[in-house]
């Protein structure tokens, strides 16, 4: 278990969290390299299936980073994303997995420091939980199917 390095997918909104990640980079605020960022035009675009598939094929944790409440560029994409994250949490619970493996966070474009902090905290949470569903039997090849 000591060698376990979590793999984390972060779906980041182009208008806020992704820019915040950029800012963290340009300010040289480091955050764990465990976090792989996927830029989305709006977190409203992130569906439950994206979170589930990520876990299924090897991610140990997934989070969605959208705009602050009321600040969505498309009105309420972040609200919808949060509802979907909650749905996936419920499904994971039903399946006996830890609901903490998925999360919703809200950031503004200027919150580079908070972005890094979120990444660190989430990585630690997942590190404590251990390997995710896809890691258990190492069926990473299903990523291709």
């Amino acid at each position: 278990m000591e060698t376990f390095e979590p793999e984390i997918v972060a779906f980041c909104c182009h208008y806020c969290a992704y820019t915040a990640a950029d800012m963290a980079g340009s300010k040289r605020i480091s955050y764990p390299s465990n976090v792989k960022i996927i830029r989305v035009p709006c977190t409203g675009k992130v569906d439950a299936i994206h979170l589930m598939k990520a876990l299924e094929i090897g991610a140990d944790g997934v989070y969605v980073a959208g705009c602050l409440a009321g600040d969505c560029h498309f009105k309420n994409g972040n609200v919808r994303a949060e509802a979907r994250v909650n749905r996936v949490k419920k499904m994971l619970t039903e399946l006996g997995w830890e609901p903490e493996r998925v999360a919703m966070v809200k950031l503004s474009a200027g919150m580079g420091e908070q972005f890094a902090e979120t990444a660190r905290k989430f990585t630690e949470t997942i590190r404590k939980l251990g390997p995710g569903p896809g890691k258990r039997t190492g069926i990473d090849d299903r990523a291709a199917s």
């Binding site: 598939k53 299924e56 399946l95």
Partner: peptide
Amino acid sequence: RKEVGLLASALHLNHLKQGKT
């Protein structure tokens, strides 16, 4: 189609939990 994908994924996660496929 969407729900089929989601249920399939959930069932996979269930089996992975039990170390099965």
